[in-house]
Computed example of a mutant assay.
Amino acid sequence: MPYLANENRYEKMTYNYCGKSGLKLPAISIGLWHNFGGVDTLSNARKILRKAFDLGITHFDLANNYGPPAGSAEETMGILLKKDFKPYRDQLIISSKAGYYMWPGPYGEWGSRKYLISSLNQSLKRMGLEYVDIFYHHRPDPNTPLEETIGALKDIVRQGKALYVGISNYNAKQSKKAAEIADKMGIKLLLNQYNYSLFDRWSEEDELLTTLKQLGMGSIIYSPLAQGLLTDKYLKKIPDDSRAAKATGYLKKDSITDEKIAKASQLNEIAADRGQSLSQMALAWILDQDVSSVLVGASKVEQIIENAAALNKVSFTNEELAAIEAILAE
Rank of each mutant, 00 (worst) to 15 (best):
L129P: 05
V296K: 04
I93M: 04
D200M: 12
A262L: 11
A5Q: 00
L55I: 01
Y17A: 14
L225D: 00
V294R: 00
R113N: 07
D241K: 12
K237D: 15
Y115L: 11
N16V: 10
W110E: 10
I94F: 11
L81T: 12
Y115W: 07
L267E: 02
K114G: 03
L191W: 02
S96V: 06
K125R: 13
S29W: 06
Y66I: 04
Q289T: 12
A162C: 09
Q276R: 01
G228A: 04
M185N: 05
E306N: 15
D232M: 01
N143R: 09
Y15S: 05
I93F: 08
D155W: 10
L124K: 06
L55N: 10
P104M: 02
T149H: 08
K252I: 02
R139N: 12
A27S: 15
L146V: 03
L116H: 11
G186A: 08
I134C: 03
L42K: 07
A179I: 07
T14K: 07
M77T: 00
I238N: 09
K97W: 11
D232R: 02
L198C: 01
G297Y: 09
L55S: 12
L25D: 03
P145F: 06
L146T: 03
L80H: 10
P87V: 15
S277A: 10
L230M: 05
G105L: 01
G105Y: 00
E207L: 09
V132R: 04
S43D: 15
L49F: 00
V157F: 06
I117K: 14
L4K: 15
S242A: 13
A264D: 01
I304C: 00
Q266V: 09
P224I: 11
T248S: 14
E7K: 15
P26S: 15
P68R: 14
A308S: 07
N171K: 09
M13G: 08
N143Y: 13
L163S: 06
T248E: 15
E109R: 11
L163Q: 08
M13P: 00
I134K: 05
Q122E: 14
L120V: 12
I286P: 03
R201G: 12
V157P: 00
L287F: 04
W202G: 01
G108R: 02
K213L: 04
Q214C: 05
Y3E: 05
G216D: 01
D40V: 00
N318F: 11
S123V: 09
E320S: 04
L209P: 02
L229T: 02
E320F: 05
A244R: 08
K20G: 01
K237Q: 14
M217E: 05
E130W: 03
K236S: 11
D232K: 04
K154T: 10
T257D: 04
K233I: 14
H34T: 15
